[in-house]
Amino acid sequence: MLTITQALYDRIVEHARADHPDEACGVVAGPEGGGRPERFIPMLNAARSPTFYEFDSTDLLKLYREMDDRDEEPVVIYHSHTATEAYPSRTDISYANEPGAHYVLVSTADTDGSGPFQFRSFRIVDGEVTEEEVKVVPAY
């Protein structure tokens, strides 16, 4: 289960909405081993694409150095799908390299009448996808 504050949830959604129709991506870091997302870090989608995202390689190094220095890990790795449902694609699965992270997908396709806004969370380990419950709380 992913437990996340309303404030962080809102920031992820805002970022996804702001970058639509391109995919938005980012991380919520938290203390190593604690499993609690705390620090919201929106990332630039170097691909600037409606169907693909990739963290810029220089930003990626900076991000991991910073997390290392602060004894943090990427608790949540999020990105948006802009025309399809919030479910990991084959591409998402093959590039998922953080077995300890919650992979959050949001879909901004709702504006096109395909149903309510979607915010879903998954574990992706060794190519296997497991959806988990998302619990939004006022504070930890």
Partner: peptide, 30 residues
């Protein structure tokens, strides 16, 4: 420095250098 902007796999190394490996964080709808 990303080695893609240096010499790729042929990038020359020296004593005391530090090499960092990071998988790309990437994906997408298709």
């Amino acid at each position: 420095e990303d080695v893609r902007f240096l010499g790729g796999i042929a990038t020359e190394l020296g004593d005391g250098d530090s090499v960092t490996i990071l998988p790309a964080v990437a994906g997408g709808a298709v």
